[in-house]
Design a protein around this nucleic acid. Structure first.
Lengths: 216, 216
DNA sequence: TAGATTGTTAATCGATTAACAATC
DNA sequence: TAGATTGTTAATCGATTAACAATC
């Protein structure tokens, strides 16, 4: 299997969604599904599903379809849900705490190993079962625990500097929630910028368009 | 101006980013910028920028470029930042509170008018300056205040039912954070699904690929 | 075997990039 | 005017969809 290699990002971005839908199907006790049935559930074309899955290998069987449980396992494995990338979160404000509590890192190949904040008043406070450390301790922590992923929930002014520092300390991937477009020029570093504000603005745009259509 | 109409979603999704970068430039006191300069900052092509902006009108001037402040204003207007869509947020758990506190609704064409939670113990507690109401009050609230946008920070099991109810109460647009793919079949309803877990999972995938490349 | 449904190739569609005439 | 840079058309590229032979 896994004739992996250069998969387009369009495909990659659909994989977690397949994974979720297959999880639901499995939970409902459904054993097999055809690309056509799945396409109706997910509101995309059967062709696209078959095309996407075939980037990684022939997971289906002619005349039968796909075995839900094993397809889900395959996709999970491709995504890396069976990994345990040590992960740190920087910035334990409203958003940082919420991300720490709300996201199940464990089911997504990550292990949340440490939380840091520059505010000494937060030091020692716990989020879930994890104590907040002061940011001064990041360096030592990285040398001991070798985290690979950093979640950034910090003000935009500090983001680039902190990220550069973290790269030196061995961080390979950033999940960036600050209102700043993080770019790292070193290669071998991955960045996922989440811009919640941008997401809301596109909804505002579409809401506004609804009103205009009415007027015609 | 505004030869608006059927703009592709690829373009729409880039608009908030243009808006942010132009805001930064304006803050730095930069008056004019060419598509080439902007393309270098934003890491996309000058051609794409000119193409994108021309969907809406000729905002530039040959031989000069674009006037930063007025281009920003134009894009802001297109996005609808000058609107005040009344917005309600349902689910005042970790994530709901964080969204309420962390997102500046006002600068994005929205006015956060109410926060609701099913847990009566939260009723009366304030988030920012807004008191949490019990979900039983949503109906009355909608009849009085006519909110247009709903932010859903609720468990996936309830999402579809609550959304359907809200459509009846006049909500036009959903910003959905639940781990559920909300689809509304009524037309004239907009949905923006935010799947933070999916976002993390694509980062896990890429992090995993980094390790593999090393082995070659 | 016959029916169903995949894997895969070919056709279409849309988005991005390149090029250049228009024009400030 | 000459130089710069847009607006816009044409060319390219990539992603999606359609079609169908392979095969379970």
């Amino acid at each position: 299997m896994a004739k992996n290699g250069n998969i387009s990002t369009s495909v990659i971005k659909r994989l977690p969604r397949y994974y979720r839908f297959l999880g639901e199907l499995e939970k409902q006790g459904i054993e097999r599904i055809s690309s056509r049935e799945l396409s109706e559930m997910m509101k995309l074309t059967a062709s696209q599903i078959r095309q996407d899955l075939n980037c990684f290998g022939g997971f289906g069987q002619q005349g039968y379809g796909y075995h839900v449980a094993s397809l889900r396992d395959e996709i999970g494995h491709i995504l890396g849900v069976d990994k345990e990338f040590p992960t740190i979160l920087i910035g334990a404000g409203n958003l940082g705490k919420a991300i720490a509590m709300h996201i199940n890192f464990g089911t997504r190949g990550c292990r949340l190993a440490g939380i840091f904040d520059a505010n000494p008043r937060l030091t020692g406070e716990t989020v879930g079962s994890i104590a907040i450390r002061h940011t001064d301790e990041i360096e030592e922590f990285c040398k001991e625990e070798h985290p690979v992923i950093a979640v950034l929930c910090i003000p935009k002014a500090n983001t680039q500097a902190i990220a550069d520092k973290l790269v030196e300390l061995g961080i390979k991937s950033f999940w960036n929630f600050s209102h700043y477009d993080l770019t790292i020029d070193h290669k071998g570093i991955e960045v996922e910028n989440v811009h919640l504000g941008d997401s809301l603005l596109t909804l505002t745009y579409r809401t506004n368009q609804l009103g205009k259509a009415e007027d015609e």
